[in-house]
Design a protein around this nucleic acid. Structure first.
Lengths: 194, 194
DNA sequence: AATATTATGTACCATTTGGTACATAATTGA
DNA sequence: TCAATTATGTACCAAATGGTACATAATATT
């Protein structure tokens, strides 16, 4: 294959674009701003992403989700106390809770914004969140079989319960930013497992 | 006071505008679309809402919240079994759960969209949600004093727990739209009260 | 009836939007 | 070395954006 070589790394510019989308949302993130953050020109951009801004956003969703899922599954796999680790995953949401730089959940934000803008992307973001739910289900199954969790509720329902907690915290933290309060919500929600 | 009389009812056009904002979000709701829904001309609009689209949106937030709070407090006041009524309030979220016409929570949506667009409106929407939280707190206090609720957790924390459930369901329902699943999340979340 | 006041509808506008066209540059393979 | 191919940067653009200016209409007060 011939041709002039690229001066950028595709993954890297996707990650940079994701930062902008995460901060501003899809619509409010202007093409100019995105190009600036990605540090590439219009020519290169529209050649790489034939679908323009929309395709770029879709790629950021996929990339973000993949990274996030990997981090979660590896983290759980490596953890001694898997229940504690799981709770820690939620606690981490409260760390950057200062209302000024509160970006919420990348996928959750997308579901909301795309709901009445682009059904296809809404469904995609929803599906990627569902993959996280499945990861929760897997963890819960393990915890139940080892007896670390007493609840005999089905892992599927408990997975939904957890992703719902995830979604909730990511909204609630953007209202108040009171980290302690958020942690008590998580504590309370996790009581179901004890 | 002299002058030509208005041909519209301000409350009514605020409600119509709110419908559009609820469906599309703030940015994606075009001025043209809003005017069409409100059925007034640009002249009248910019005379009534000097702050333009932003002021209109702010008014919809206030109006919506007021209506919603009234409905909630009256509903609770009239209810025999207040705990059952409270749960019903959450169950109602699952009724229009079909993913196609899923608008989420008006205030929650605003918090998300305004987060990195207009801090002032984000805070306002967050505050209006907080007023709902306070309503939950009041209900829980009552339920605790009558012994209808066993949990001795503080009503404030439980209120936060409930508004967080509210926020969560409103996101989660936009991912799957499986009403039964949503109801089991609510059931599970309400177990804390029994 | 005249005037002051407020409401309405239309024409207009600067800015910003995402996106395209195209000339040029930098490679590889023949 | 010369095509063929791919990447880059710039100039450009149609459409849509929210908003303003202003002439006109309808009312209350005097």
């Amino acid at each position: 294959m011939a041709g002039r070589p690229r001066q950028f790394d595709e993954i890297e510019i996707i990650e940079r674009a994701a930062e902008v989308f995460w901060l501003k949302g899809y619509e409010a993130a202007s093409a100019e701003e995105l190009l600036m953050a990605m540090n590439i020109g219009k020519g290169s951009f529209y050649l790489t992403f034939k679908g323009g801004k929309r395709e770029l956003f879709e790629k950021t969703l996929e990339h973000f989700s993949k990274e996030s899922l990997e981090k979660l599954s590896k983290g759980i796999a490596a953890a001694q106390d898997k229940l504690a680790y799981l709770k820690q995953v939620f606690y981490e949401l409260t760390e950057d809770a200062h209302i000024s730089k509160n970006k919420g959940c990348y996928l959750g934000n997308a579901v909301v914004e795309m709901s009445n803008l682009d059904r296809e992307l809404q469904l995609k973001a929803g599906y990627l969140l569902y993959k996280h739910e499945l990861e929760f289900v897997k963890i819960i199954s393990t915890l139940q079989s080892t007896g670390a969790i007493k609840t005999n509720e089905s892992p599927e329902i408990l997975g939904k319960y957890l992703i719902n907690l995830w979604n909730g915290i990511n909204i609630t933290k953007r209202c108040s930013g009171d980290a302690r309060a958020l942690r008590s919500i998580i504590d309370l929600s996790f009581k179901i497992f004890t």
